[in-house]
Structures are given as structure tokens and as C-alpha cells.
């Protein structure tokens, strides 16, 4: 199959798994907003209002990161419960095209939530079109990183029951613990570097910058909080996870 046909196939998967599902399952549509919106509401009630923009940026990144959780669950479900991955890869479709189609489908689900949070952000800080493009760039990198990780994890499961605790541990520690919904300034100076153990911190720092929010330095290791390092770190981590997903994915049971 030519590249053009593969690209078309990827788009079809995104269409029927992402857009069609979104249209037919309105309840899930609400579920996507629910967690980040509740965090935001919580922040609004308990935190000073200067913390709010960090929370809104957090909502954007949370949505992007949770495509990874969706990817992990959906890929495991379609392989183990429905055996549809097997139906799709025993065909001229390349296995990687299947993964990319699914990942785009996950992104499609998230578009409404992303649009809402970006809109809310534009109401409370002034966002230039360039800033919006920058945010979209960070979102796309985050999505690629998260869905690669989600897919990679999904391939190791032999049973669906094992999955939800792992998903909760991995994606909560990526999206709730690190400074996603709050500013890095809230982390004590001495251990601030530790936040960069989570790949999502890179995304968060970059997104805060793009949105024009004050970015906190890391006194112990100043280089950590610099634009080149954040960009390189983010891109490198994304490439790393994507390559790992491509190399380690198990298309054939051993």
C-alpha cells in the first residue's frame, strides 16, 4: 500500500474511532471535561485568583496528557476484549498506521475540551495568535508523548483487569502531581529540580511561557528552567517515547 493509501487509512481510523464515537456517545463527551473542570473549580474556590491562569493551562495539558490514558485503555480493550487490533493489522494496513489512527482518534475526542480551555484562557490573559499556535504545538508534542507511552504500556497487558490501576498511577503522576495545575513556584526551592523528573513538567513550563505567565526559575540548576532546555527536553522525550513504542510494541505474541 502506498503512503497516500496509508495516510488515508489513518484518517479513516481517526474518523470512525474518534469523531463518530464522539458524536454517538454524548455522555463520554462530558466525562472528558469533568476532571479538569473540577480541578479548575477547586482552584477557583481555594486559591488566590492569580493562580487561576495556571489552572486553565493545566486544564489544557491535562486534556492532552489524558489522551495517553485513553490510548492505553482503548488499545488494550480493542486487542484483548474485541480482538479488533488483530483484524486491522492482518491487512495491508501497517501496524504503525493503526496506532497513529488510534492516537489521532484520541486527539479528536479531546478537541472540544482543548478548545474550551484555550477559549477560557483567552478571556483571562491576552493571547496573541502566535501564542495560540505555540500552545497548540505544546499540546501536539504532549499528545504524541502521552499516546506513545499509553500504547507502549497497553502492549504488555494480557488481561484487561490489570489495566486500570496502572493507568491511574501513570497518568495521575504525570498530570496531577507535577506542576501542571499550579506554578512551579509552589514547589520548595530545594526540590524544584525533582519536578523535571516528570516529562509533563517540560510541557507545563513551555505552555506557561507561551501563555505569558510568570515562569519560575530553578536556583539549584538554572539551566533547567531555560527555553532551549525545555524545548530540547520536550522534543527529545517525545521522540524517545515514540521510538520506544515503535520498537517495543508487540505485534506478535512471543
Amino acid at each position: 500500500m502506498s503512503w497516500k493509501t496509508q495516510a488515508n487509512a489513518i484518517w479513516r481510523i481517526c474518523y470512525f474511532y474518534g469523531f463518530l464515537a464522539l458524536r454517538r456517545a454524548p455522555l463520554l463527551f462530558i466525562a472528558i471535561f469533568l476532571t479538569p473542570l473540577s480541578f479548575l473549580f477547586f482552584l477557583y474556590v481555594v486559591a488566590p485568583h492569580s493562580a487561576l491562569p495556571f489552572g486553565v493551562v493545566g486544564g489544557i495539558l491535562f486534556s492532552a496528557l489524558f489522551t495517553g490514558n485513553g490510548m492505553m485503555n482503548d488499545c488494550a480493550y480493542l486487542r484483548l476484549e474485541r480482538q479488533l487490533q488483530q483484524v486491522f493489522i492482518t491487512s495491508p494496513l501497517r501496524p504503525m498506521s493503526w496506532v497513529l489512527g488510534m492516537a489521532l482518534g484520541e486527539l479528536a475526542w479531546t478537541i472540544p475540551a482543548l478548545a474550551l480551555f484555550i477559549f477560557v484562557l483567552s478571556l483571562i490573559v491576552s493571547l496573541s495568535p502566535i501564542a495560540v499556535l505555540g500552545l497548540i504545538g505544546v499540546v501536539l508534542l504532549t499528545w504524541l508523548l502521552a499516546t506513545s507511552l499509553g500504547f507502549l504500556i497497553s502492549t504488555f497487558f494480557r488481561q484487561l483487569r490489570e489495566i486500570w490501576p496502572i493507568g491511574t498511577v501513570v497518568f495521575t503522576s504525570l498530570s496531577v502531581l507535577p506542576p501542571i495545575f499550579y506554578s512551579l513556584a509552589a514547589v520548595p526551592e530545594r526540590v524544584r529540580w525533582a519536578a523535571f523528573l516528570a516529562p509533563s513538567t517540560f510541557a507545563s513550563q513551555l505552555a506557561d511561557r507561551v501563555a505569558g505567565l510568570p515562569v519560575t526559575a530553578v536556583p539549584a540548576i538554572p539551566a533547567l528552567s531555560s527555553v532551549p532546555f525545555e524545548v530540547i527536553g520536550m522534543v527529545a522525550l517525545t521522540i524517545l517515547f515514540t521510538l520506544m513504542a515503535m520498537r517495543l510494541a508487540r505485534w506478535r505474541e512471543p
Binding site: 470512525f16 483484524v87 493489522i89 491487512s91
Partner: peptide, 15 residues
């Protein structure tokens, strides 16, 4: 090989 085949897996289910 994959380009030449299609499979109904045992106990597969549709979307």
C-alpha cells in the same frame, strides 16, 4: 503476508 490475508479471530467482536 499480511497484505494477502484477512481474519475472523475466535470470539472477536465488532466496535
Amino acid at each position: 503476508v499480511r497484505e494477502q490475508i484477512a481474519i475472523v479471530p475466535q470470539e472477536g467482536k465488532p466496535f
